[in-house]
Design a protein around this nucleic acid. Structure first.
Lengths: 191, 191
DNA sequence: AGCGTGGTGTCCGAAAGCGGACACGTTCGG
DNA sequence: CCGAACGTGTCCGCTTTCGGACACCACGCT
């Protein structure tokens, strides 16, 4: 409505850095300070589930998480999990071993960009800021209207459970009559 | 909950094909019949907004839409629009002119795969089915619980409008008191 | 100062949404 | 053939939620 954001006064975007090495986390935090304000760090995938409960603009994710074994598998896994939780957030992958096929794989999985460790601070910041910008523009297109979101979610639940109202209702966290009412409200009852 | 879907009896996934050439649309429809059931077709980006009002499992999108001019720009634009509407759906791009940089660009933009025209029917079907599968797995991770979705959406709206309750409320499609109540319900009022 | 504007937080009567319960129809398995 | 299990569609008393309205605060401006 108002057009573009004021770029100077606005609070800094939120970011999450995931790496198993605490030194890396500290270094990243230093590099990002001043460009991002809430800077969350996590050294285990599990922390993703609990630690952050506010919407992120960007994520830096280490690929060779629990390194040595499947090179990058775990990172791609974590990437998928992050994307499942919030499909709009842009994730920048960090890796020490650059491989084209892995990069393509990661891009297919939804990574926004790639950065090699050890990084140059300005490159890291630039990639993170670009990711935040991408997240922002991806979000600007999508509606926030709760009615529309509810409608789409109900449609998805019905599709996923093949029209079984009882299952869909419990997946949606509603009682069955409640789902009936909302379906009627959205015109999903006759089709 | 139940594990995997039965693969024989279940209805076929929904797909959308976008191309400016009607012959291509027809050919695609023929090739896909039997593998997808609701097969929507569109020959203009605008139709995306109106035509389809049920959740899709896959999208085939022509890149050199309105070809001749910016090679693929329009396609990437349409891709972004589709992703803005539903970030979870996998989009397979079709193009007659394969270029590595364009492919990378498209992958960065969130494309699931690439296919060259003219295609071999089995390749097309395989790519589309893979995309549908990817969509399905991407969705299986994310919650359908309306309460949680409402909470996240409200968080996003508040972040986007920097805590301005009035603006956030109107973006969310509710009255200001309603937003207050829901914030309190989700514990977003003290922070 | 005085005023308009635009934000916040809260109240209350009216309106809606809620979910337990009931009456079905179908589909199994003994 | 009958009963158990499961799904659907609907009803109704109770609870929650709605949103217009009000008071208030903080600016910005002649």
């Amino acid at each position: 409505m108002t057009g573009s954001y004021p770029s100077l006064m606005e609070p800094l975007p939120a970011i999450l850095v995931v790496d198993d090495d605490h030194d890396v986390l500290r270094a990243a935090k230093v590099a990002l300070t001043g460009h991002f304000d809430p800077i969350f760090t996590a050294n285990a995938i599990e922390e993703l589930e609990t630690k952050v409960e506010c919407p992120l603009e960007a994520v830096l994710l280490d690929m060779n998480f629990a390194l040595g074994r499947h090179s990058g598998r775990e990172g791609l896994d974590a990437l998928a999990r992050i994307k499942a939780r919030d499909p709009t957030v842009s994730v920048v992958l960090m890796t020490a071993y650059g491989s084209v096929s892995l990069a393509v794989e990661a891009l297919k999985e939804g990574a926004a960009d790639f950065i090699l460790k050890p990084w140059r601070n300005d490159k890291l910041v630039a990639a993170a800021l670009a990711a935040a910008e991408r997240t922002r523009s991806a979000r600007s297109g999508q509606t926030l209207d709760l009615d529309i979101i509810e409608r789409r979610t109900i449609e998805q639940a019905l599709a996923q459970y093949r029209g079984n109202i009882s299952l869909a209702a419990s997946a949606l966290g509603l009682s069955r009559p409640a789902l009936y009412r909302r379906m009627a409200k959205h015109g999903l009852d006759e089709s």
